[in-house]
């Protein structure tokens, strides 16, 4: 299914790609305090940038929607999307969201990434624990990833 940006009314019907679906289920399976703990675990799993990107930070895009400095790049090689992100150790919530997207989207085809529902951030059961502004930050990350993927496959 191909859909454009802004088709909000169909969002809830869309299914998540497999790894993101698993992550979402993992979050929803535990109680609210444990969801934050889980997000913390994800924040620790965010891989360091490969050296080639560390040496060229200009290749990464800053996600302005996030309250903490987070930089993200989506590369497309041999028909698969590869994501890299970096955020400060002192910004665990942001790191956690970035880590979920990296784990959930890495290796997918560009079309699968473009088809990922925009409301991923709202499918983790964190609405009560985390302010709306922060969830908007995660949506901002996804939007920028999609835009980069679209630009690189155009």
């Amino acid at each position: 299914m191909v859909h454009g940006r802004g088709i909000i009314d169909r969002v809830t019907e869309q299914t998540l790609p497999p790894v993101l679906a698993e992550i979402s289920e993992e979050f929803l399976a535990v109680g609210e305090p444990d969801r934050l703990q889980l997000l913390l675990e994800f924040s620790r799993e965010l891989p360091a940038l490969p050296t080639r990107l560390e040496e060229h930070p200009e290749l990464l895009e800053r996600v302005a929607e996030c309250q903490s400095p987070v930089f993200i790049v989506a590369e497309v090689t041999d028909g698969a999307v590869h994501l890299h992100a970096t955020a400060p150790e002192q910004a665990p919530t942001t790191r956690g969201f970035a880590s979920i997207l990296v784990q959930g989207l890495d290796g997918l085809t560009p079309q699968q990434v473009l088809d990922t529902p925009n409301d991923v951030a709202h499918r983790l059961g964190l609405a009560k624990a985390i302010s709306p502004l922060r969830l908007a930050g995660m949506s901002g990350m996804l939007a920028r990833i999609k835009r980069q993927v679209a630009a690189r496959t155009a």
Partner: peptide, 22 residues
């Protein structure tokens, strides 16, 4: 903190967390 997970990363020994949002 603003970042709701920051306390969990490490805090002053003995400090308790008060979350403004929740």
């Amino acid at each position: 903190d603003e970042d709701v997970l920051l306390y969990e990363v490490g805090h002053i020994p003995g400090a308790v967390k008060v979350d403004w949002h929740t």
